[in-house]
Design a protein around this nucleic acid. Structure first.
Lengths: 339, 339
DNA sequence: CTCCTTGGTTACATCGTTGTAGTGAAAGTA
DNA sequence: TACTTTCACTACAACGATGTAACCAAGGAG
């Protein structure tokens, strides 16, 4: 920067001003600096700027795992949106592990970032005190840390309600709630509550045998739990997978056992991942509006970073969702199967 | 750091030495510093260290897209391995776009990183001059920049050869090479060459009708191209998808059209993504040894960063691969279908 | 008994920016 | 005319670490 200043015959500070869009500058000065920058191929040193400013222009996105399609797709969206704000995204994965979630919030990378977008799996409201101490934070998924961070919410109860209602509308009575039992995850509790509300409204009983827990929310887990349910002789005419991975795992097992989807059993998921569109049959799912979630999360985080203490003015926005009907609940050319 | 030094009654430099494992220090001094650090809850400022040292401790992983399972899984591995070296990974996606690949190498993030692991899609040998000018670089996939960067290679020809040989061994004669035609990608050319070599060795003709190009290497593209091939009335008894996504797309279309897999058509892919294990039927695939690739890539990059100019001593390592036979080529309980 | 080495520590300058305070000049106000 | 305001720019000191050179002790070589 000194060299540029020398070549343009101005002070270093003026060059700095040039890069920071300082308005009061003669056009001629600006032009001289521009020429000098070009000639020397100079680039502003981000590290020095970070040191001086005390902020890095980086944010973390903290998610359980990238090899789950939902998170990979979310990460992509967040990276793109952040770029429009001049922010760089550091993707952290935790495997849903408590220690790794805490580490991501307060560990080594803590001082590398200006804020974080966090999709907690293991951490809950009781961990509030350990929440990154003053780190600007946007929580994804559920209102867990009321009054401590901004939230971008998925309307879990409503999403589940809509999914189950759809199954009821096409005439299903015995719905396997896949993922409902996994204790410790708040999302599971809310989606279960929404599901049961929908059943109740339809005048259907909640059968405890059909509330199934899984070991994680992966295809493997969905497949295994569904296989177990079938082996136990539980009978059902629909599966509500609490995410697409679970639903796809279930569908795989159903087909494997010679059951027809949706003929014998209808299947619905949540997330609208790319995989859902390419399953066989294609998977009906609840789309959570991923692009919207990413955009709102980054926007909230940016304004929190800019104004750290808008005293307790923590915001919550809820993303829109949408039912996307595909072949796993209503086969093409099939009459609506409502009696 | 000044505060720590004051509390421990030593100089700042001694505290710095403590953090950098400087060996000549009295145990008693070390203990005093340790106590002071604990008491003040002090953490070394990474930004200042980066400024002073001229290196950031971050590396880029530059891949086409995260929502392709192969890259998501690779990213996860690279992040984990890098962490064992104390390195932070910045994941960049390019959509296989030329400009974005160049931007990732020499753009804004250039000075944020000490090196990059790069899986090029659009860039080829002719772009060598624009290659990040002195940025330590490890290229993934193919030997494209001989003498300019280290490489971790996938034995594309051998992998393809083995895949096609497997299909031939189970008695297939007319094999659709899915992804072969996409011009511009070197991987495609090598895999095609390996495939054709295997056919030639088996005394089988190469039918141009069965060399099919796709619009990208996604499920969508695989499905579309396969559908087109069927519509054109081309006949084949096996599909070699140049990656798992293509193969799964193909398999989906085949089942959709009422063909049996592997009864009528066997399907094989490359990558051994998680999806391959959960396809219906499960997908036979060539495993490229992802963990090994990640480890070697990070190791090469680290040594390149430590010794920037081991004059032209650029290394190439080739990862091991393995054929993983699943139900899409040999149905369980089926006799080996070789005549 | 001096001269050199090795161990343990320190003072200081420096990495490349940007905030603060301040300097002239030109323009607007009383 | 004198006085404030706005404009365009500058000098200097930080931000928090680390490399360099140098220092003082203690022990070994000559």
């Amino acid at each position: 920067m000194h060299d540029v200043a020398a070549l343009a015959r101005v002070s270093v500070k003026t060059v700095s001003n040039y890069f920071n869009g300082y308005p009061y500058m003669r056009a001629e000065t600006r032009a001289r600096i521009e020429r000098a920058v070009d000639e020397l191929g100079y680039r502003l040193n981000v590290t020095a700027r970070s040191l001086r400013r005390g902020s890095t222009g980086m944010i973390s996105l903290i998610v359980p795992e990238l090899d789950q399609a939902y998170f990979a797709e979310l990460a992509q969206e967040v990276i793109d949106v952040a770029a429009t704000f001049g922010l760089t995204v550091l993707v952290e994965t935790t495997s849903g592990d408590r220690d790794r979630e805490l580490e991501a919030l307060s560990g080594l990378h803590r001082q590398l970032i200006d804020g974080a977008i966090f999709d907690p799996l293991a951490l809950g409201p009781s961990d509030a005190p350990q929440l990154g101490g003053g780190l600007p934070l946007v929580i994804l998924g559920e209102r867990q840390f009321e009054g401590l961070a901004d939230h971008v919410l998925i309307a879990d109860e409503e999403v589940a309600h809509r999914a189950v209602s759809h199954l009821v509308e096409i005439g299903r009575r015995r719905i396997l709630l896949l993922g409902a039992g996994s204790p410790g995850t708040h999302t599971a509790i809310l989606r279960r509550r929404g599901s049961e509300a929908a059943l109740a409204e339809a005048g259907l009983p909640v059968d405890g045998d059909l509330v199934v827990s899984t070991d994680g929310w992966t295809r493997d887990a969905g497949a295994a739990a569904t296989a177990r349910a079938l082996d136990d002789g539980r009978r059902f005419d629909a599966v509500f997978g609490f995410n697409d991975a679970l639903a796809l795992g279930a569908q795989w097992v159903l087909l494997e056992r010679g059951l027809a989807v949706p003929g014998d059993v209808a299947v619905i998921g949540v997330d609208d991942t790319r995989d859902a569109r390419f399953a066989h049959p294609t998977l009906t799912t609840m789309s959570p509006g991923r692009a919207q979630i990413a955009r709102r999360a980054v926007e909230l985080l940016v304004s929190r970073i800019r104004e750290p203490e808008t005293e307790n003015g923590f915001a919550s926005v809820t993303a829109d969702f949408e039912l996307i009907v595909r072949d796993s609940t209503v086969a093409p050319g099939t009459l609506n199967s409502t009696p």
